[in-house]
Amino acid sequence: MSAGRLLSMLLLLQSRGRMSASGLADELGVSLRTAYRDLARLQDAGVPVYAEPGPGGGYQLVDGYRTRLTGMSEGEARALFFAGLPGPAADLGLAAEVTAARLKLLAALPTGPREEAARTAAVFHLDAPGWYREPEQTPYLPLFVDAVLTQRAVDVLYRRWRAPQEVRRRLRPYGLVLKSGTWYLVAATENRIATYRVAQVLDAVLSDERFDRPRDFSLGTYWTSYLDDFQSRRHTGTATIRLSPRGRRRLPDNVPPEVARAVDATETPVGEDGWVQAVIPTESTGHACGELLRLGIDVEVVAPPELRQAMAETAGILARAYGSAGTAP
């Protein structure tokens, strides 16, 4: 029997309320039989766990029962402080609350974990936006936080890339995701669940409509599926390219990771000069042309013909521009 597993089961019931035995087994990574046995051991130990039969039933603690935060290891205390890094909390309008919670957690911890957690907080800082870009302005992000937590619909004016560019929507927010410094809202409309870039929201107003978020909806699962679908829709073609040794070294700094991974997986030597040939995914002829031009003379497009022609035409335009007499400085 694992005392740590019993404590985890107790904390799951305390934090989530009613849970089925199969749900507990999945969370703890054990068999259903082990979950039933651990529930019985909690009851034998005097923990007030009771079962609610019928559809939607499960196991839960008697109302008002709480256990103290004890037995936290130094590693667990250290990990907790990564959940409250200041940048995202400030974006969400929760900077003061996170700071207060961190102070209370520090005060509640024993001396060893408290010192370890304080050291961790002092030596890590999160700056989410990537290099060479300004942080996006998201004035309506705190409103969406309120809408997600209170399950209220929001009427928005949203700017998208295709026509008509400005559209009005009533959204039922299911969650928020921070991806590479950019906030996204996952929300349901009348007929589907979609993803919206929070910085593209031009106006937002909380409505009086209340909604129930589906119990089986998982934000993490949805986001993983969304990213997979985005990549499959984004890359609709392929190109065969040749890279010099210098181009091969420069590749990760000039193309998306999936393109670099494709080169890793498909590259073959061509000749004795160190050049390699590989097949990469492409989004469109124009996009691939602009991406590959960053590598200059260290890349050659072999196929398809339309991309090779686009590269040649662009190179010709550049040659004419720089070959003509320029304006004196």
Rank of each mutant, 00 (worst) to 15 (best):
G290H: 11
V301D: 06
G286T: 12
L293T: 14
T282F: 08
M311Q: 05
L293C: 14
P281Q: 09
R308S: 13
Q277W: 01
T314S: 12
A312Y: 00
I297A: 13
R308C: 05
L295W: 03
P281Y: 09
I297P: 00
A278V: 08
P281E: 09
V279L: 11
Q309F: 00
P304S: 02
T314K: 07
G274P: 04
P305N: 01
C289R: 15
A310C: 04
C289M: 15
R308L: 06
P305E: 08
L293Y: 11
G271C: 08
A278Y: 07
A288F: 10
L293F: 14
L307H: 02
R308P: 04
E300G: 12
I280K: 14
R294L: 15
E313A: 07
E283I: 14
G286V: 06
G290S: 14
W275Y: 08
R294K: 15
L318V: 10
P304D: 01
G271M: 10
L295K: 00
V301I: 13
M311E: 03
H287G: 14
A312P: 00
I297M: 05
R308I: 04
A315D: 01
I297V: 11
G271A: 09
S284C: 10
L292Q: 04
V276N: 11
E291Q: 15
V299M: 07
G274V: 03
E300D: 14
M311T: 02
L318K: 00
P281W: 08
A315W: 02
A315I: 07
H287W: 15
G290N: 14
